[in-house]
Design a protein around this nucleic acid. Structure first.
Lengths: 336, 336
DNA sequence: TTGAAAGCGCTAACAG
DNA sequence: CTGTTAGCGCTTTCAA
């Protein structure tokens, strides 16, 4: 065994070293290690002893190449700062327990070009399947996903044309449900505070559904404010402040998500605006933080964990391409 | 090109297909694709044309095996639900931009056994380096990390013995700073609300530093409450409620982290406890949410992004093993 | 500048 | 039950 430039031993122990040490053939070691095929308890013990003694760590790169199967599930998401996506990951990992598969995560930062680059990079590792957030991708990314010959699950949105498996809920319907709830409560001068809608296409769909439902109810949509601030909570606070400066007559505001709605609520607290008496606030996602507050946010709870879990289950199965609508739940809090 | 059971084409395009299509040798394609070695502009164009025409996606598994270099950086963290760790990831990715390396993330859920399993699984992919949260690992995990022959960076804690590179701050010192701040403000009956300290060793070190500093100041530590609730905010709320039920005389409480402190603040709001007049609250991490609130939390801002960034820079370099103390910043909010 | 050939470390038939 | 033999798809000398 050689050492590297810093004097540490280099992990050069290979399967054939183990085979030699155990006095068996390479394929026997391989079978024992994967617990696949047959071998006597005796040889098994000798192999495992050699493995332990040499500190052998199997090389999955070689294994994957030889078996043309990586046991990797790629997950492509726009962000980790928004708890929604880690929730999808948790769901995916839960469904993966015991399958021997691992997830590999790529973060696009809501950038389609970056998404394409990440899809390319992850596909190069020949994953068994890909989970990706949303239905909107560059033509290039979509072509790679379609041509990869593996199962693809698009999650958290079902409003559009999918590639293979689609798991989530209708953002358009969620926006419409929010609008109907507000209108049902008697609010009539409705506004919206959100962030970059070109990047977050799911938020854009919610807003579209919201406006559509408002129109259908014969109510006018008052105004919207798009705030480009890095922190979602800060964006909500500042966005609401600006929106109200323009339209002090608003009686209800719909936010892109709970984080922004909480920021908006902070603005109301600081500005002495009574919620929901003077102004109603409606969020989206059903975060713990929004539900645990003394005045729980009225919001829509989305099935993130279930989406990850279901998507994995389906891509690992061999069923036909489908669309699974997991639905959502409107949480009547104390802010609308 | 064959098709799979669902009629999709299988990505069977290999480098040799490209070579044949372009009328050149395999090694030429390889050189062009990695822009390494020499070739004429003409051959380059023919190769790239063939790549585009066939929709070739290089197989990094084969590439990594042949070159014995994966360009992977493994990141092992306890959770994704706590924004702290995604922040480390973002820092790592920022430092990785342009290096051609990718991160692979493993989540341990604060379980040492799981951490060992994840280290084993990630090491099997022969990463160029490993970033791992904290200094406490199972003997097995530590042995694998030491024997892997690659650079290892342990982040977010410097209180203990590291393997190779250690980047972060002293949690013990952070706890002590919190204690001194509270004592300096005149608080004398101090309590603590936290979660499972055996798993979160960094929180345990903060508490140790906190108690130590209190003792050094001649003040008695009043009481502590460890709450086993899944949601951190909920744990903070319930934990504070229980602690105060036992010790209604407390005048200040130190929390494991900001999420729990916010939960505690919610309890105060609901119970009509004046903060900080009647009770002071002190958090840890300096989250956006805690700082954007109308009554900003008094807390300690930790260098998560910088830790990820610095760790990657160091593991990619060839400097000696070191400990880098990034420090922390006490944020004087309005709750203590 | 280019191609041929020899592996990288492992798995998967296939004999024995 | 076990060993031998081919590769998996790419990179890397090394000649040409």
């Amino acid at each position: 065994m050689s050492v590297n430039e810093r004097g540490r031993p280099i992990a050069a122990v290979t399967l054939s070293d183990v085979a030699r040490a155990a006095g068996v053939g390479e394929s026997t070691v391989s079978r024992v290690l994967r617990n696949h095929g047959s071998f006597t308890p005796g040889t098994r013990d000798r192999v495992l002893a050699a493995v332990a003694r040499l500190g052998y760590v199997p090389n999955r790169i070689a294994g994957a190449l030889a078996s043309t199967d990586s046991n990797l599930i790629a997950l492509v998401i726009p962000s980790l700062a928004n708890i929604v996506f880690p929730d999808v990951l948790r769901g995916a990992n839960a469904a993966l327990a015991g399958t021997g598969c691992q997830t590999v995560v790529g973060v696009t930062d809501y950038d389609p070009g970056e998404e394409e680059a990440i899809v390319r990079a992850l596909l190069a590792w020949r994953p068994r399947a890909v989970l990706i957030a949303g239905l909107e991708h560059t033509p290039g990314a979509r072509a790679m996903l379609e041509g990869a010959g593996i199962r693809v699950a698009e999650v958290l949105d079902i409003d559009g044309e999918g590639i293979d498996i689609v798991v989530g809920f209708s953002n358009r319907a969620a926006g419409a449900a929010a609008a109907r709830h507000l209108i049902g409560r008697g609010y009539r001068r409705l506004g919206y505070v959100g962030h970059d809608l070109e990047r977050d296409t799911r938020a854009a769909k919610r807003l579209a559904g919201f406006r559509e439902a408002i129109g259908a109810a014969g109510v006018d949509f008052a105004d919207l404010e798009i705030t480009p601030v890095s922190s979602a909570m800060e964006a909500g606070r500042r966005g609401l402040e600006r929106l109200l400066a323009r339209r002090p007559d608003l009686d209800a505001v719909y936010f892109s998500n709970d984080d922004m709605a909480i920021g908006g609520y902070f603005h109301c607290l600081a500005a002495g605006i009574d919620v929901p008496g003077r102004l109603a606030l409606f969020g989206h996602n059903g975060l713990d933080a929004a539900r645990a507050a003394p005045k729980p946010l009225t919001t829509i709870l989305t099935p993130r964990f279930a989406a990850g879990e279901t998507a994995v289950r389906l891509v690992l199965g061999d069923g036909p391409s489908t669309v699974v609508d997991l639905g959502f739940e409107l949480i009547e809090g104390a802010t609308a």
